[in-house]
């Protein structure tokens, strides 16, 4: 019995000692986590950076924006990531969590914009939608069609019910699940934008914000909106085989698959590069990444990575990221963030 416990203790000590020595080892590559929307851009920059500098290519995990902040804000030290990608700005609660765990100085870099396309198969006619149409077609509860300041469960079955100018096909929209940043952005920009066109709901925002959000952002669950997973390629394939369906996904997937799918015209604007860059296309959002200042100088090459990402040849209007479908920022904004990347200006909230 005594001998057994001695053996056990020895094994445990060895394991712990081994673990401690591993933990103390330095990391010589940048570790990046975060949004799956930023992932295709971040990886391209990382690869260029790895090939053209003496530093190792960064490791990039696609964990989703929220998951990325959770890992990023867990603390300072080589076992935590240095950079997190985000398809929305950091929230106050996430910033506070970072502060609490000792992640004090965070540098925010905006890299450009991403449009969210509403698209259908080329075999079907192109749709001309308004944000109001999208809201009425997709919300769980909509204002009573008979009038009055009350909501009823969504009665619309076909696009024609929503707007007489639209075709009489069944509403069937394939889109991302609630865990996705794309879904958050879509709900905020398209659904909230559409429901704010009703005067009384807009007034509600100031009086009862919870109710406003519930009415505007809750997506219907009766089968008209199908959660198609995080894989945008899958949505494109499903649209191709089902001409009646409409898909919601990132602009870069529309750009790559124009021979199969066509973007709908939203509020009179087509999902084209120029329209998104000029801010005319209504469903577009900024993309960011955040850097832990405490890791600069500890992990080699972070400053150079920031320079590569904000350089004109990467995120400029003719840079290699625009070939991948990232919409670049206007000149002044680009200059501002390039400056922030050089001076390492921390974010204050």
């Amino acid at each position: 019995m005594v001998r057994k416990s001695v053996v056990m203790a020895a094994i445990t000590t060895t394991l712990l000692a081994g673990a401690a020595s591993v933990q103390a080892a330095a990391r010589d590559y940048i570790s990046i986590v975060g949004s799956s929307t930023v992932y295709p851009f971040s990886t391209v920059v990382a690869e260029q950076y790895g090939k053209s500098t003496r530093f190792k290519t960064p490791k990039i995990e696609s964990t989703g924006t929220g998951g990325g902040f959770k890992l990023f804000c867990a603390g300072v030290g080589v076992e935590n990531p240095d950079v997190t990608n985000a398809s929305r700005a950091i929230k106050k609660s996430e910033y506070d969590a970072c502060q609490k765990n000792g992640v004090k100085d965070i540098i925010e870099i905006k890299i450009g914009y991403d449009g969210i396309a509403v698209a259908n198969s080329r075999k079907a006619p192109q749709l001309q939608l308004t944000l109001r149409d999208l809201y009425l077609a997709l919300a769980k509860e909509v204002p009573d069609p008979k009038g009055g300041d009350r909501v009823v469960p969504n009665p619309y079955k076909t696009w024609k019910d929503v707007d007489p100018t639209l075709p009489a096909t069944k509403i069937e929209v394939l889109g991302p699940p609630p865990t996705s940043g794309t879904r958050d952005a879509f709900a905020e920009l398209a659904l909230e934008g559409g429901c704010s066109t009703f005067g009384w709901i807009k007034d509600l925002k100031k009086q009862d914000e919870d109710r406003f959000k519930r009415i505007c952002m809750t997506v219907r669950e009766d089968g008209a909106y199908v959660e198609a997973g995080e894989n945008d390629n899958l949505i494109v394939q499903k649209l191709e085989s089902n001409p009646n369906a409409v898909g919601v996904f990132g602009y870069s997937f529309l750009d790559q698959n124009r021979d199969y799918v066509q973007g709908s015209i939203v509020e009179g604007v087509a999902a084209e590069y120029e329209a998104i860059a000029e801010g005319k296309y209504p469903i577009s959002r900024p993309l960011f990444f955040y850097v832990k200042k405490a890791h600069i100088g500890v992990i080699p090459g972070i400053e150079e990575f920031l320079k590569e990402f904000t350089s004109e040849k990467a995120s400029g209007p003719e840079g290699y990221l625009s070939d991948r479908g990232l919409i670049s920022m206007p000149d002044a904004e680009r200059a501002r963030f390039r400056d922030a990347a050089v001076k390492l200006t921390p974010l204050s909230m």
């Binding site: 591993v22 080892a25 790895g50 190792k56 290519t57 490791k59 990039i60 995990e61 696609s62």
Partner: peptide, 17 residues
Amino acid sequence: IGMVAFIVSIPAGVFDP
């Protein structure tokens, strides 16, 4: 455990990503 990641370099050992 973070193995779903974009990793360009070929791992040279069991501690490499």
